[in-house]
Structure formats: structure tokens, C-alpha cells
Amino acid sequence: MTVLIRPYDSADWDDIQRIHDAARLDELRAAGLLDAYLDLAATYENEGLFDDEVWVAETEGAVAGFIAGSVGPGGGEITWIYVDPGQYRRGVGRALVEHFVARSGGRVELEVLDGNAARDFYEALGFVLESTTTGKLAGNEMFTATGHTLVWTPPQL
């Protein structure tokens, strides 16, 4: 299956909202935080989705996932990444992360909730645990969550 990565367009809103809302349920369920669920429409502004670059993944002409984050001198941070649950384990997430890493030019950081199976995925791509913290859940600060900061560092030449 071919995965095309392209910049987000406002016409993608309905697709990324549908993808986020479905995948966020999986993410929170795995972390034991299902009661903390809020949909994308309720969180994207406060969480700064469009403060950074946003890219979408397409398969067979349909949006299958998206990634957002900041890229600066020497690296970047992935702040959002969601894949349509119907597209899990088909290379969409890998294509999004590889695209972001290639654009970063250096170290890449992201956070994953404790219990989220995505941690194994990121570690398989070369991310390593840097730290674990417990605090307010981003997007719904009424809840406390434990998150792991994972870091990818370019191979040494």
C-alpha cells in the first residue's frame, strides 16, 4: 500500500476530526482515562493543533492519519499524531513519523500516555525513553495522567 504524505488543507478538517476522535478513544482506553475523552473540536484550539506544521497521510485517495509538530534548528517535537483505527498496522503511522523525522534534521521528541501500545511502535522506530512524568492530562486538565517522553536521535556517522 502506498502512503502519500502532504500538507494539511482546510478541506481535510472533517477527516482529521473523525480520525482523531476514533483513535483518541483507543489511546485513552489503553491509559485507563476514557472518562477524560474530549473530541477534536473541543480541544484543537487550546492545544494549538495549528500552531505548528500539520501533515496528512493518504492511502488510496483517502485521509488515513495526520501528524503535527514543530521543527526548529537541530530537531523537533511531534505534538499530535493519529491514525484511522481502520488503518492501524498498515504503515500509515510509520510513514508519518519518518516524514517528520526527515524534516526535523535532528533530535525528535514526543510524549505517549502510559499504557498506550503506540509506545512499542515508537521504540521499534528507534525512539528511547527519556523520562516519565505524572501531571495534568493535556487537553483535559481535570484528569491526571502519566506520560513518557520518548526521543529519537539521528544515528552517528
Results as ranks from 00 to 15, higher is better:
D51C: 14
D35C: 03
E130T: 12
P7H: 07
E47C: 02
M1V: 06
H148N: 14
A138D: 15
G91W: 04
T134Q: 01
G126H: 09
A30S: 07
D26A: 06
F121R: 02
L38A: 10
H148T: 12
E53P: 01
P85A: 05
T153N: 08
H20L: 03
A117S: 15
G105N: 04
E60Q: 06
L157N: 13
T146G: 07
L49N: 12
M142G: 15
G32W: 03
L137C: 11
E27L: 14
G65F: 04
T43H: 05
T79R: 15
R119W: 05
N116K: 04
A36T: 08
V71F: 07
D12K: 05
R94K: 12
L157F: 05
Y44R: 10
T149F: 12
E27P: 04
P154Y: 14
T132I: 14
G72Y: 13
P154K: 13
G106W: 12
I19K: 00
G86N: 07
F127M: 05
E60I: 00
W55F: 13
M1Y: 06
V128N: 06
F100N: 00
V54E: 02
F66H: 04
G91C: 06
Y82P: 14
I19M: 00
A62V: 02
R94E: 13
A22K: 06
K136S: 15
T43L: 11
V92N: 00
W152Y: 15
M142P: 11
L110Q: 04
E60A: 08
L125W: 04
A124K: 09
L110R: 05
E27I: 11
E60P: 01
A124I: 02
D114H: 04
G32Y: 03
A117R: 12
V108C: 00
I81T: 09
G48K: 14
L28Y: 06
G32V: 09
A62N: 01
W55Q: 13
V112L: 13
G72L: 12
D84F: 00
G69H: 02
I78E: 03
L38M: 14
A31I: 10
D35G: 15
Q156S: 12
G69L: 04
D26Y: 04
R24V: 14
M1T: 14
R6G: 01
L25P: 02
G76T: 02
